[in-house]
């Protein structure tokens, strides 16, 4: 131990180390060590690329009608066939990526911001505020999220934007509850008490003590909710309350295809496969992330 006098000698003479660059490759590396997660991540990345470069990648304009090729099975010209009015299924699928991705990202944004906020506030303030907010969430949770979304769209009127809003809002209760749960354990932890004993402000405690410790949970839940958002949007479109024809959306395509299930299997099959594949990979990725971020799995 140094004596006080020594400790107070000017420190310019000593070199204070600079903060190391705070880039954390470990987390990414860890995720990559899960084989399934790696493929899922690669697949999702591919999907995003397809969405971004849809105009280049799609063989035709998705709304172009091929009058000479109605309900064509997969062929050289139309790899995944055409529909009843002659649109190219592959092109529609590729453009559909854009709709699906933007819808889920937008919906998720709503859930993420509102859910995190409500969850943190409930856990941190507790008492009456927590009780009231959480009881409201409980009531909303009692309905399946798709029913809730239906109700919201019914009020707002069917359109893609409203469907996004509805899906986003409908997921808030579940999300808020999960975040609240995670935050409650943090609230009872010693370091929050220590922070209070130091005299830190509430906003500081929320920002510096809560947020870094819920990021793991946030990332995991967000990923898992992408799957839900995609499914819900597709479901809304399927029953005609989401994307309106002629928008190329997977749910809408599925819905249109169901009328021709016996004559033209490709119409419903490919959008269905696309939805399944994306949701599956998102969920697998979420599971892997949970393993990575779950403190108990850290050896």
């Amino acid at each position: 131990m140094t004596k006080l006098s020594e400790a107070y000698k000017p420190i310019q003479a000593r070199s204070i180390p600079k903060a190391p660059l705070n880039v954390k490759f470990d987390t990414l590396k860890k995720i990559m060590s899960y084989k399934r997660a790696k493929y899922c991540l690669a697949f999702l990345f591919l999907i995003v690329i397809i969405g971004v470069f849809a105009p280049i990648l799609a063989p035709y304009n998705p709304n172009k009608l091929f009058y000479d090729a109605l309900l064509q099975p997969p062929s050289k010209e139309h790899l995944l066939g055409t529909d009843a009015i002659g649109r190219d299924t592959l092109s529609r699928l590729i453009y559909g990526v854009r709709v699906t991705l933007s819808v889920s990202v937008f919906a998720l944004g709503i859930t993420f911001v509102a859910g995190t906020f409500i969850g943190l506030i409930c856990a941190y303030i507790g008492g009456v505020v927590d009780n009231i907010l959480m009881r409201i969430m409980d009531i909303l949770l009692a309905l399946p999220s798709i029913i809730l979304a239906l109700a919201i769209v019914a009020i707002l009127g069917p359109s893609l934007t409203n469907a996004m809003l509805a899906v986003g809002i409908a997921s808030i209760p579940g999300f808020a509850r999960l975040i609240r749960g995670a935050a409650l354990t943090i609230k009872s932890s010693g370091y929050v008490e220590a922070s209070r004993s130091i005299g830190s402000s509430h906003s500081w405690i929320l920002r510096r003590q809560f947020l870094p410790n819920v990021t793991g949970v946030l990332i995991v839940y967000t990923t898992l909710f992408i799957g839900v958002a995609i499914l819900d949007t597709a479901a809304l479109s399927f029953i005609g309350l989401g994307a309106q024809p002629p928008t190329s959306e997977w749910g809408t395509m599925l819905s249109e295809g169901k009328d021709y299930l016996y004559e033209a299997w490709w119409l419903a099959t490919f959008p269905g496969l696309a939805i399944t594949a994306v949701v599956f990979s998102v969920n697998f990725l979420g599971d892997a992330l949970r393993d990575v971020f779950d403190p108990k799995s850290k050896g």
Binding site: Y191, I198, P212
Partner: peptide, 25 residues
Amino acid sequence: FQDPMESMNPKLTIREILSEPLIAH
């Protein structure tokens, strides 16, 4: 506090932990 592991945020560096009282005051 009794348990130093419990009373420190595991996600913060020592510098950040020790700055907390300075920022608060």
